[in-house]
Computed example of a mutant assay.
Amino acid sequence: MKLIHRLLGIEAQDIDGLSRQILMPVGFALAVLLLWEGVTHVFSIKEVLLPAPSAIWSRLQESLPVLLQHAWPTAWESVAGFLIASVLGIGLAALLSASHTMRSMLYPNVVLFQLIPKIALAPLFIVWLGIGFESRLAFSVFISFFPIVVATLAGLDNVDKSLLRLCRALTASNWQVFASVRLPHALPYVFSGMKIATTFAIIGVIVGEFITSQAGLGYLILFASSQADTALILATITVLCVFGLVFYGLVALAERWTRTRFGA
């Protein structure tokens, strides 16, 4: 086995890392599913209360075309909201880091807005923007914006002071310091905030679909609940989880590429 690993160029540390990152969580999830399946059969739990994973899988296969049809609006609105929130969040964090005056004026108000329960504001976005995708997109941006601002600002502020003194000694401009020192140093913080924002962006869209939409995974969950179709609810949630994992994975891949590119 060691010879095969050497021929493939795989180190022992890589195998151990692969085991911890993939095999262990997958194995635990499979064990939970097997336990779930066994409990539903042993205790004869009604499907309307808690369907077995096998029943959910069957329902998923039966409804796959419908699920994919409703997954599309949820997916593109979530991605669009995330991208807009990322641009606005990074831009605002850069502004707050560069200007103490703007930071004193804006940052406390940003924090104040985040203290308001988000679900309470969802109807206001519908009143302001209507029942179309615009209200869902705006709400998604609103709730996923704050983690990116906080994380990026922390990264921009936590630059090694000796590097900043060296830049001043070399008469570097503020833009040069930002582009060459502050931003590359802040990349791990930026992507930490973006990973959190992926979840928030999806939540924002789903909440909007609960209220107004006639399409999307949130609407499908609400429709299935009105029909007491628990298997369809859980099948829809499964599709939503898969999308969330793919979304998060793409952000993680972008982080790896960016940090390699900039040496962060």
Rank of each mutant, 00 (worst) to 15 (best):
K2T: 12
I4A: 13
R6K: 15
R6T: 13
G9R: 08
G9A: 04
E11N: 09
A12P: 04
A12G: 11
I15K: 09
D16S: 14
R20V: 13
M24L: 15
P25W: 06
P25K: 05
P25Y: 07
V26W: 05
V26F: 11
V26T: 10
V26L: 15
A29R: 11
A31T: 14
V32W: 09
L35S: 12
E37R: 06
E37P: 05
G38N: 13
V39D: 09
E47D: 14
E47W: 08
P51V: 00
P51K: 03
P53L: 11
S54E: 11
I56Y: 05
S58G: 11
L60F: 11
Q61P: 03
E62W: 10
S63F: 04
S63H: 00
V66G: 09
L68W: 06
L68P: 03
Q69G: 12
H70R: 12
H70I: 14
A71K: 06
W72Q: 15
E77V: 15
G81V: 13
V87R: 02
L95S: 10
L95W: 02
L96Q: 02
S99Q: 08
T101L: 11
T101F: 09
S104K: 12
V110Q: 01
Q114T: 03
Q114R: 12
K118F: 01
I119H: 00
I119P: 01
L121M: 03
L124Q: 01
L124K: 07
F125T: 01
W128L: 14
L129C: 00
G132P: 05
G132N: 06
F133E: 15
S135N: 03
R136Y: 00
S140M: 05
S144E: 00
F145Q: 02
F145T: 07
F145G: 01
V150K: 01
V150C: 00
A154N: 03
D157V: 05
V159C: 06
D160Q: 10
D160H: 06
K161R: 14
L166E: 07
L166H: 00
R168G: 05
L170Q: 09
A172I: 03
S173G: 08
W175Y: 08
W175H: 11
R182M: 04
P184Y: 02
Y189T: 06
G193W: 01
G193F: 00
M194Q: 02
I196P: 06
A197P: 07
T198W: 05
A201W: 08
I203S: 09
G204Q: 04
G208W: 00
G208M: 01
F210N: 02
I211K: 03
Q214C: 08
A215T: 13
I221A: 04
F223H: 13
F223N: 15
A224S: 12
Q227D: 08
A228I: 15
D229R: 11
A231H: 02
A231L: 11
L232F: 07
L234Y: 09
T236D: 05
T238K: 05
L240M: 12
C241T: 14
V242A: 13
V246H: 08
F247C: 15
G249Q: 12
V251D: 08
L253E: 09
E255S: 02
T258V: 11
T260A: 14
F262V: 12
F262G: 03
A264G: 04
